[in-house]
Design a binder for these strands. Structure first.
Lengths: 163, 163
DNA sequence: CCTTGACCTTCCCATTATTGGAAGCCCCAC
DNA sequence: GTGGGGCTTCCAATAATGGGAAGGTCAAGG
């Protein structure tokens, strides 16, 4: 089958299938006379594996590992468990941070009258000259570029959500 | 003061200060004879405001709004509250999704013996041919490109973690 | 047989926030 | 007066994905 079909059957866009091939997550597909990529049911099987892993928030890098373990009949389940647990830890840490942030904000918002007067503790807090003189350009970064890798808005966030 | 000093005092890297200027989050700084950017204490004040907002997970886009509100003495606190609460909702949703993911994974990992035998329900789950034939190339996407915007690994994930 | 349209190909660009590097000025302390 | 470090700009990369252009292929219909 061609890439469109494989895409429909696996739930991964054709674009991403080509991308995954380009970065080596999946081997290069064989081509038809006309240069079209050809996929077998087995390939689709692999693609679905990838889709599920992706839906669980695994990064491509982790998927490389998982795929190798999947294909290796002699793999030790301990390896899989290790990867999974490491991922669980990451997810939990990120969830915790998110909850802390939302808690702080919520608290601030609760003390914000929400009327048309300019008093607002949220702004006040942000403007406050408090604490240490700030660690020098700590360069603290956020998540990884794509952060947690959640299957977000599904139907909700189809739009680019910005300009 | 020059950008290095402003960076140290605000906790935002010089690189990011220039970046914020380039995208219009902050106005272009005046320049010294030698072409160096010059910052006042007030500018540093603004930069710290930005740093705090960033630490609370606000995106640049949201910071633009917050800064405008901050600078506008006649602002309505209702606007600030609205933005904050919307952000809280987002954060909570993301945290919830993360917890769901980690829960699923944890459950799977608990049933994985973790020995040197190849049996592993994690792999089995991923490989399973179950369910619907997968919604056609749904193109479901994850978070925004930078997802939640947490102050992540601090010391943990400093490394590029790849290649 | 040839056209049409759906599908495929590659390549490039954009997104987000941030860091890294290179090449080349500038400035202050010694 | 000079050396090293700070400053400047521009370019690239990151992760994952979408969007589009320009052009080739395939299958069905006229």
């Amino acid at each position: 089958m061609n890439i469109g079909r494989a895409s429909a059957e696996s739930g991964i866009s054709a674009k991403m299938i080509r991308y995954y091939e380009s970065i080596g997550l999946i081997p290069a597909a064989s081509r038809s006379e006309g240069g079209y990529r050809e996929y077998s049911d087995n390939d689709v099987h692999t693609l679905r594996f990838i889709r599920r892993a992706r839906d669980l928030g695994f990064t491509v890098e982790q998927m490389v590992e998982l795929l190798a373990l999947w294909r290796d009949r002699k793999r030790a389940s301990a390896d899989v468990k290790r990867i999974a647990l490491k991922h669980v830890e990451e997810l939990e840490r990120k969830a915790r941070e998110l909850r802390e942030m939302s808690g702080t904000l919520k608290h601030l918002a609760e003390h914000c009258k929400g009327n048309d007067r300019p008093d607002c503790p949220i702004i006040a807090e942000l403007a406050e000259e408090a604490g240490q003189p700030a660690r020098p350009s700590s360069g603290r970064r956020r998540f990884g570029p794509m952060a947690a890798g959640l299957t977000t808005g599904r139907s909700t966030s189809g739009r680019p959500a910005r300009s």
